[in-house]
Design a protein around this nucleic acid. Structure first.
Length: 557
RNA sequence: GCGGAUAUGGUGAAGUGGUUAUCACCUGAGGUUUCCAACCUCAUGUCGUGGGUUCGAUUCCCGCUAUCCGCACCA
C-alpha cells in the first residue's frame, strides 16, 4: 500500500478532475462548497456502485427497494426528531453582539442541553444568566434557531406548507412501513432499501468528497421482532476484524466471538457488519484499512441502542463511511405517536392466552342521566375497582365525593381468548455514505508506479465498478484495422450492461496509459493479424499480460 | 463561523502597472510507427468574480466566491 500524502492527494484530485471522474460542481459560475459533479467517467462509477450495493442487499431474499421523495413535509421530520436534532439555537449577546450556542452556555448545569427545546433553553438561560464568553456580560437577546436542513416551501404563497430536503433516506422506509409490511404478507423479519440523495446544509464543508451538502446515501431498514433471538451464521466470517469497543478498546476479533461476548450487543448488528465488510471490500477498499468503531453511549444519536461505524483509512485519515445502528423501536413509535396510525406488526402467541375478565362497569342508562358529563370519569374509576367490591360505595373523583349505588354498576364476567398482540418492530439500520465509499475505493485503487523510468498511474478498480468495461484500440487507424476495431467496439456496446470505449489516437503505449489511468480493466488491440484470422489481443490492466482471443469469443461481464 | 495562505489554458507551473502573457504536459488534425506515455508539423485553449485607485490593472487596494491548513462544528 502506498503512503497517503498531501502530494499524492494533490496529484490524485488533479487526475480526477482532468479525466472527468470527480469535479467541483457549478465551477463555471464560481463553484459552491459542498457540491460535486460525477463527470463522464465518474457518473458510471457511481451507478455501478449503486447497483452493486442494491444487489448485495437484495440477495438476502427478504429485502425490497423503494424510492421516496427528497422533499419532505415539516411534520415528518418533526416526528422523527430531526427538526430538534438538526437545529442549533443561537443567542446573541446584547452588549457585544457575539452569537453563542444557547445549549453551550448552560452546558455545565445541563449536560444534555442540546436536546432542549427553544422554550426550555430560553427559560434556563433567563434563570441561570450565564455570562457571555466574549465580553463577560450577561445580557441576552432572543434565541434564534439555525437549522442544518435545507428548508423549502411546498406549494406557493399563502397555501404553502413548510418542508425540508430530507437529511436521510430512512424516514421514507418508516412512513411506508404499512405497505412494506403488507408486501411481505405481515411476516417479520424483512427490510427495505433506498438509494438516493440526502441534504445537510453543513456550516463548513471540507475535505472534498468527505463532507458534502448534497450526497448519495444508501440505507437499509431491517425490521425485526425484539422478542426473537435471531441466529445468523456468523462463522462465515473467519478472519478477525479490527473493532474498537466502547468498553474494551481496540481488539482483533471475529464477529461471532464479538457477538458471543456481548461486545456487539445484537447478533443482527453483527451479521450486518459482516455483510457490510464484504460489500465494502468488493468495491475495492483495502480490508486492512477498515475498522469498526462503537459509538460511546453519550455520542449515540437519540434513538440508538447500539451503533458501529465502519471507518476507512485514506488520504483524510480515518473517516466513518457506514453506520450500523440498532435504532430500537424509536422511529416507528415516533411516527405512530405523531399520526395516530398503527405502525406495528402482529405476533401470534404459540398458545392463545385465556384471560378471565372479572370486574365492574357502569350502567350507562342510569349513570348517564344522573351524572351527565361526569359519567366518563366515573366509568374509568369503576372499571378499576376490584371484582369483590360492594355497592353502594363512595368514590373520590377530582376532590368530589360520589356515591355509587348498585343501580349504577354492572358486573362483567367472561373469558377472552387473546391469540396474539401488536408490537412495534425494532429496526437495524445499515446506512452507507456512497460518496465516501467511492472516494476511498478510488483512493485505495490509485497506484503510482515507475514504468520504464517514468511515473505511471493505474486505477485498479474492481471490474464490478469500473467506469468502462473495455477499451478497443486499433494498432493503426488504417488498412481496415480501424474499421474492424470500430465494429468490435459497436458490437460490445450493444451487449447488455457492457460499455466499450474506442480510442484511436496516439501511440499504442499512450492509449494503454490513458485507459489504465481511469481504471478500465481490459484493452482489446486490433492488429494486422486480426484481419487475417479474426483474433485480437486482450490486455489485462493490472498485469499488462496479453492473450490472443477469437473475436467471436470475447467475453465481458 | 474565526484565523492564516492561495486563485494564471484541461493539468502543473513561470511572469508583468503598458500595446500580442510564457512554458511543460494534456487534447485535436496530419505524417511516421507492427503492442506499453517515442518522434515531426500544425492547431485549439488561460489571468476566479465584482468594485476601487490609475491615462492604463492579470499585477496595487477592498468586497465576494472557491480551495488548502489550523480552530470550532458535525451522521
Amino acid at each position: 500500500m502506498e503512503e497517503f500524502s498531501t502530494d499524492r492527494l494533490a496529484r490524485l484530485t488533479g487526475m480526477l478532475k482532468r479525466r472527468g471522474l470527480l469535479l467541483p460542481a457549478f465551477e463555471i459560475h464560481g463553484g459552491v462548497a459542498g457540491f460535486y459533479d460525477y463527470g463522464p467517467v465518474g457518473g458510471r462509477i457511481r451507478n455501478q456502485v449503486n447497483q452493486a450495493w442494491l444487489s448485495h442487499w437484495l440477495s438476502l431474499g427478504n429485502v425490497v427497494e423503494i424510492s421516496s421523495p427528497t422533499v419532505t413535509p415539516y411534520p415528518v421530520l418533526e416526528a422523527s426528531g430531526h427538526v430538534g436534532e438538526f437545529t442549533d439555537f443561537l443567542v446573541e449577546c446584547k452588549k457585544c453582539s457575539e452569537a453563542s450556542r444557547a445549549d453551550h452556555l448552560i452546558e455545565s448545569d445541563y449536560p444534555n442541553a442540546d436536546s432542549f427545546t427553544k422554550e426550555e433553553l430560553s427559560k434556563k438561560i433567563s434563570e441561570l444568566m450565564p455570562i457571555c464568553p466574549a465580553c463577560g456580560v450577561s445580557d441576552w437577546g432572543e434565541i434564534s434557531s439555525q437549522n442544518l436542513m435545507f428548508s423549502t416551501r411546498i406549494g406557493n404563497a399563502d397555501s404553502a406548507r413548510e418542508g425540508f430536503l430530507r437529511p436521510e433516506t430512512a424516514q421514507g422506509m418508516f412512513t411506508s412501513f404499512t405497505s412494506i409490511y403488507r408486501h411481505f404478507r405481515e411476516r417479520l423479519p424483512f427490510g427495505a432499501v433506498q438509494i438516493g440523495k440526502g441534504y445537510r446544509n453543513e456550516i463548513s464543508p471540507r475535505q472534498g468528497m468527505i463532507r458534502l451538502r448534497e450526497f448519495n446515501m444508501a440505507e437499509l431498514e431491517y425490521f425485526i421482532d425484539p422478542e426473537i433471538e435471531y441466529h445468523h451464521n456468523l462463522d462465515q466470517w473467519k478472519d478477525s476484524l479490527t473493532l474498537i469497543s466502547e468498553n474494551e478498546g481496540e481488539m482483533q476479533v471475529t464477529l461471532s466471538k464479538a457477538v458471543e461476548a456481548g461486545i456487539i450487543r445484537h447478533s443482527t448488528v453483527g451479521y450486518f457488519m459482516g455483510i457490510t465488510f464484504d460489500f465494502v471490500t468488493s468495491i475495492g477498499i483495502n480490508p486492512e484499512l477498515i475498522r469498526f468503531r462503537q459509538h460511546e453511549s453519550n455520542e449515540m444519536a437519540h434513538y440508538a441502542v447500539d451503533c458501529w461505524d465502519l471507518e476507512i483509512m485514506g488520504s483524510f485519515g480515518w473517516i466513518e463511511c457506514v453506520g450500523i445502528a440498532h435504532r430500537g423501536c424509536y422511529d416507528l413509535e415516533a411516527h405512530e405517536m405523531a399520526t395516530g396510525q398503527r405502525l406495528r406488526a402482529w405476533r401470534t402467541f404459540e398458545t392463545p392466552k385465556i384471560v378471565e375478565i372479572d370486574g365492574w362497569t357502569i350502567d350507562g342508562s342510569t349513570v348517564g342521566p344522573e351524572f351527565k358529563n361526569f359519567a366518563g370519569k366515573i366509568k374509568n374509576a369503576v372499571e378499576k375497582l376490584p371484582p369483590d367490591s360492594i355497592f353502594p360505595m363512595s368514590l373520590e373523583i377530582d376532590d368530589d365525593e360520589v356515591n355509587i349505588e348498585p343501580r349504577h354498576v354492572k358486573k362483567i364476567q367472561r373469558q377472552e381468548k387473546i391469540s396474539g398482540e401488536w408490537f412495534i418492530p425494532h429496526v437495524v439500520e445499515p446506512a452507507f455514505g456512497i460518496d465516501r465509499l467511492i472516494w476511498h475505493s478510488i483512493d485505495h485503487s490509485y497506484r503510482e508506479i515507475i514504468k520504464s523510468g517514468e511515473a505511471y498511474t493505474i486505477l485498479s478498480l474492481p471490474k464490478s465498478i469500473s467506469p468502462i468495461d473495455v477499451t478497443v484500440l486499433p494498432l493503426f487507424e488504417k488498412d481496415g484495422i480501424d474499421n474492424l476495431a470500430r465494429k468490435i467496439h459497436e458490437n460490445l456496446c450493444k451487449r447488455d450492461r457492457v460499455l466499450s470505449n474506442y480510442d484511436g489516437s496516439g501511440s499504442i503505449g499512450r492509449r494503454y496509459a490513458r485507459s489504465d489511468e481511469i481504471g478500465v480493466p481490459y484493452c482489446i488491440t486490433v492488429d494486422y493479424e486480426s484481419l487475417e484470422n479474426h483474433t485480437v489481443t486482450v490486455r489485462e490492466r493490472d498485469t499488462g499480460k496479453q492473450e490472443r482471443v477469437k473475436i467471436d469469443e470475447l467475453n465481458f461481464k
